[in-house]
Design a protein around this nucleic acid. Structure first.
Length: 922
RNA sequence: GCCGGGAUGGUGGAAUUGGUAGACACGCAAGACUUAAAAUCUUGUGCCCCUUGGGGCGUGCGGGUUCAAGUCCCGCUCCUGGUACCA
């Protein structure tokens, strides 16, 4: 007897598909295109675990489905192959990271292919491949040679800026540029030396070196971007991060802040993800107000979103790092201030964050004048004011800001209430908006109107201006590491020069070690004879991990083009990604940087879609489900879960691969941990039961489940369907195999339905029964709708119901099977292809047409109505669809059960909703 | 603190968007086949009362709207993701 045997079928078809290059896709203007993309993985040494393929399976189902629907589908895969782990390994072992990476990629590909994905490997990209990073460097060059024109609201070539400088100087130019850019006339510009011109242009270029306070991670020996730092620790490795001023390459992403927010509206992304990006960019509308310092020429500018509360200002606070601190400090306060600045600077970012609720500060001795009330208010310094946001100066209003309130209370500073209703409150900050009081000419005005009034008056009197602030900072683009793209720049007289296009790629040089040099230079400083034209030093930092991943979706369109980063023909045809599936952890990193680069390339006319990812779905994380055994302390004895409370035990993680449904395989355990070969096991119900907990999948918790093992045991089709069956794609869920038998059973049942005991295909060829067609078309409709809605788990259920019903009517009809295989093939391609070929169908099931469901088979001639009495379902009755509501009502009232409930009374109302329900109200 | 998402049987999850709550699957129980096991099949399975027929209660908690609420509105509780002296 021959049963369904995945071990035979799956490798056979995988090989077959590969030999026929069946997944290779070509640009075809006669077909509509569909682009399905997965976030490409970092090829770690650990290989894939069962969590990785979740999103890939979903995207593969959509790809195969769209192909059956007649689309020309682009579904590529590649590797984000620059990164820290390979480099750390290189530091430890001396092995070149390229070798590690190559090996890991081979493992990944082997694992991926076993799952039966329809990737077009001829388009594979690897960010660490010089043929790829050549173009990453080229895009860097495009950014270097561009500036952002705020009047046209787009990036333009740097040449257009130079032309304008020559003609009119810079005073009429509205551009994204450094804060400290001086203004100059055309004459002055034309008289600048070449170096001066070059220096000046750096203030405008979209990527440029700049002295900035950065996140420095001593343990990793590199700077990190804001999104790579979590709570004062590096995201990778969890090492402490310090603030440090260093010269770095920067990307002027702030120029795009507004567009990155407004474009979000047109995207089909989850609201939470859009919100994350909005918060990260952190746009806030407000105004800057100037405060004259008493007995001084100094004017302090404070940014506020609550200009209406100006009459409530009782002091000014500036950041301890603020450049005017020394000048503002009076001789009497000098000692106090210097001591405070010292402690503030010495405190790490982490300490500062953990002491958020601790109030601290010092008085400078100086006073400032409130421009509206004319009041004299003291100037303080405090580390709750951040030098990097706004102007580093805050006008403190203790009556409407919690932090100011806390500070004022602590130091005994006055509090003026300016909102009606706060007079009696102990904490006036509880009411933030309302009618203005104690506020001069604002009295009686609503706070929202008052903001506008103050802003207008400030602008009119030249004591302030309307201003928009962003939280987002320009992105640090330098990494003091080896395993990344070299920045294609050399220095001549200290001025950075870009390499010519013909000179790209600038390949990574060989180095004897992957550590920083003794003088503290990045690893590239170890390269010998690595100079441009033998004399000019190259930039020694490399690009960050997000550089290569910020445009890879474009390269897939034309992956092997040696002339351009992507051809116009390809980019016009494939356009943007229709469906992007990946994890939410990239919300404020990759997904923001990619949008930035894509917007830039759009501005430069190099691509023709504003946004890279039209629809985005975040698949949930598959967590590990760790198992525990309980060892009795000081004894070589283990007790089962239910008995552990009777002993004093220590809890040990046990490899989940030797536990099935929480029952430990004791022999396997003894083999796994030879030191316990002699151990005694106390069982319950003849079994050793393990405890469990859901936590992150990781090697150290012995809860990693490898897809290869699952495939060996159940087959790829079962794994694919089971991962979908587990629940909605977006949900986080622990991996457990409790239900996988159900899916395996389904495939066996399908197989058996169309085979005899000897394993030969047995099908009938006559017209299928109407009942069978009804089941089939119901399933076609459901599966189509489910895939369109990315609701894969309910499709799997639909297939199960379908096969169960066909089995119960013993339908082994060929025509039914044929359509069933087509709709099943996105989920379970191997078994579908096998049966398809057994049926004698020509070609691959991949190239079949997705059958259209036929309404005539789904039409009911009668509907079974639930009959409710006062909203509670009591009985069911069937009525023809063309029956009038009046007739239905009459029959319902005549029904025996309804009569019983009516007890002779006439009902108040009878509601008949066609094809829904009949409700009798008594 | 602020902004998202959520809470449905023993478990994972369904529910035509206001209309039969618990599809499908796991688990469990009973039975069939078998020397036995595996596999397969059949039946039952939200909770409670009840001899049956049947009845009552049920979607985190408390109110409300409605003929009808898991679904809508108001007020809580808990879980989860993001973010945080951003003025």
């Amino acid at each position: 007897m021959s049963e369904y045997n995945h071990k035979e079928i799956e490798p056979k078809w995988q090989e077959n598909w590969q030999n026929q290059n069946i997944y290779q896709v070509k640009l075809d203007p006669n077909k509509p295109k569909y682009y399905v993309l997965d976030m490409f993985p970092y090829p770690s040494g650990a290989g894939l675990h069962v969590g990785h393929p979740l999103g890939y399976i979903a995207s593969d189902i959509v790809s195969r489905y769209k192909r059956l629907k007649g689309f020309n589908v682009l579904h590529p895969m590649g590797f984000d192959s620059f990164g820290l782990p390979a480099e750390q390994y290189a530091i430890e072992t001396g092995q070149h990271p390229a070798i590690t990476t190559e090996n890991n990629i081979a493992t990944f590909k082997k694992q991926l292919n076993k799952i039966g994905f329809s990737f077009d490997w001829s388009r594979e990209v690897r960010t660490s491949d010089p043929n790829y990073y050549k173009w990453t460097q080229w895009i860097f060059g495009q950014l270097f040679n561009a500036w952002y024109n705020q009047d046209s609201d787009k990036a333009e070539s740097i040449d257009s800026l130079i032309a304008r400088f020559e003609k009119e100087g810079n005073s009429n130019i509205s551009a994204a540029c450094d804060e400290d850019t001086p203004s100059f006339s055309s004459e002055e510009w034309n008289n600048f030396t070449e170096e001066q011109k070059a220096e000046m242009l750096l203030k405008y270029r979209l990527t440029h070196p700049s002295e900035a306070v950065v996140n420095w991670c001593p343990a990793l020996g590199t700077v990190l971007a804001n999104d790579e730092v979590k709570d004062g620790f590096s995201e990778r490795g969890g090492h402490p991060v310090e603030r440090k001023k260093m010269k770095q390459w920067m990307m002027r992403i702030t120029a795009y802040a507004d567009r990155l927010i407004s474009n979000l509206d047109s995207l089909e992304w989850s609201e939470s993800l859009k919100e994350m990006q909005r918060n990260w960019i952190g746009k806030s509308q407000g105004c800057e107000l100037n405060f004259k310092v008493v007995d001084s020429d100094i004017e302090l500018t404070a940014f506020t979103t609550r200009a209406d509360t100006i009459f409530g200002v009782t002091y000014i606070v500036i950041a301890p790092e603020h450049e005017l601190v020394t000048q503002l400090t009076t001789p009497e306060q000098k000692e106090t201030i210097e001591a405070y600045v010292q402690t503030a600077v010495n405190r790490s970012e982490r300490e500062r964050m953990s002491e958020v609720k601790n109030v601290s500060g010092a008085f400078t001795g100086s006073y400032a004048i409130n421009p509206f009330s004319g009041e004299k208010v003291p100037i303080w310094i405090a580390d709750y004011v951040l030098a990097g946001y706004g102007t580093g100066v805050v006008m403190a209003v203790p009556s409407s800001d919690d932090r100011d309130f806390r500070f004022a209370n602590y130091f005994g500073l006055p509090i003026i209430r300016v909102i009606e209703g706060t007079e009696e409150l102990e904490n006036p900050c509880e009411i933030k908006h309302g009618k203005m009081i104690n506020s001069g000419f604002l009295n009686g005005m609503d706070s929202v109107a008052a903001i506008a009034a103050i802003s207008a008056k400030a602008e009119e009197q030249g004591i302030g201006k309307v201003k928009v602030n962003y939280k987002i900072r320009d992105a640090v683009f330098s990494r003091q590491r080896y395993w990344g793209e070299p920045v294609p720049v050399y220095f001549k007289e200290g001025i950075p020069h870009l390499l010519e296009n013909e000179e790209l790629p600038l390949e990574l040089p060989a180095v004897n070690e992957y550590k920083p040099t003794e003088t503290g230079e990045p690893p590239l400083g170890r390269a010998t004879d690595w100079k441009y034209q033998g004399q000019y030093p190259y930039e020694l930092t490399t690009m960050p991990g997000w550089a290569g991943s910020s445009w890879y979706f474009l390269r897939y369109m034309d992956a092997n083009n040696e002339e351009e980063f992507v051809s116009q023909e390809a980019v016009k045809y494939w356009n943007s990604v229709d469906l992007y599936i990946g994890g939410t952890e990239h919300a404020t990193g990759h997904l923001l940087y990619s949008r930035f680069w894509n917007n830039f390339l759009f501005d430069m006319g190099l691509i023709h879609h504003k946004e890279p990812f039209q629809k985005l779905v975040n698949q949930g994380m598959i967590q590990g489900r760790s198992n525990f055994v309980y060892k009795v302390k000081n004894e070589n004895k283990f007790v089962s879960l239910g008995l552990k409370d009777q002993y004093e035990v220590s809890t040990l993680h046990v490899d989940v691969n030797i536990v099935e449904n929480d029952v430990l395989d004791i022999e396997a355990f003894k083999k796994w941990r030879p030191e316990y070969t002699e151990a005694e096991f106390v069982l319950e119900d003849d079994k050793y039961l393990c405890g469990y907990v859901v936590e992150k999948m990781s090697k150290s918790k012995y809860n990693v489940v490898n897809p290869d093992d699952m495939i060996a045991k159940y087959g790829a089709d079962t794994l694919r369907m089971y991962e979908m069956f587990l629940g909605p794609l977006e949900h986080d869920k622990p991996w457990n195999t409790h239900g996988i038998d159900g899916v395996a059973k389904f495939l066996r049942k399908l197989w058996r339905l169309f085979h005899d005991n000897e394993g030969s295909l047995v099908v009938t060829e006559n017209e299928p029964a109407k009942e069978a067609l009804k089941v089939l078309h119901k399933t076609i409709k459901k599966v189509e709708e489910d895939i369109e809605n990315l609701s894969f788990n309910t499709s799997v259920s639909a297939f199960m119901v379908c096969v169960n019903e066909l089995a119960s009517m013993k339908c082994n009809n060929q025509k039914v099977l044929k359509d069933l295989l087509v709709i099943l093939s996105p989920y379970a391609p191997h078994i579908s292809e096998e049966l398809w070929s057994k049926l004698g169908q020509s070609g691959s099931v991949l190239d079949a047409n997705f059958p259209a469901w036929d309404e005539t088979y789904l039409k009911e001639d009668a509907h079974e109505y639930p009959i409710s009495i006062n909203g509670k379902m009591r009985v069911k009755m069937t009525f023809a669809l063309d029956m009038s509501p009046k007739d239905i009502e009459a029959e319902v009232l005549a029904n025996e059960t309804v009569q019983k409930w009516l007890q002779g009374k006439t009902p108040k109302k009878v509601i008949v909703v066609p094809k829904r329900i009949v409700n009798v109200v008594i």
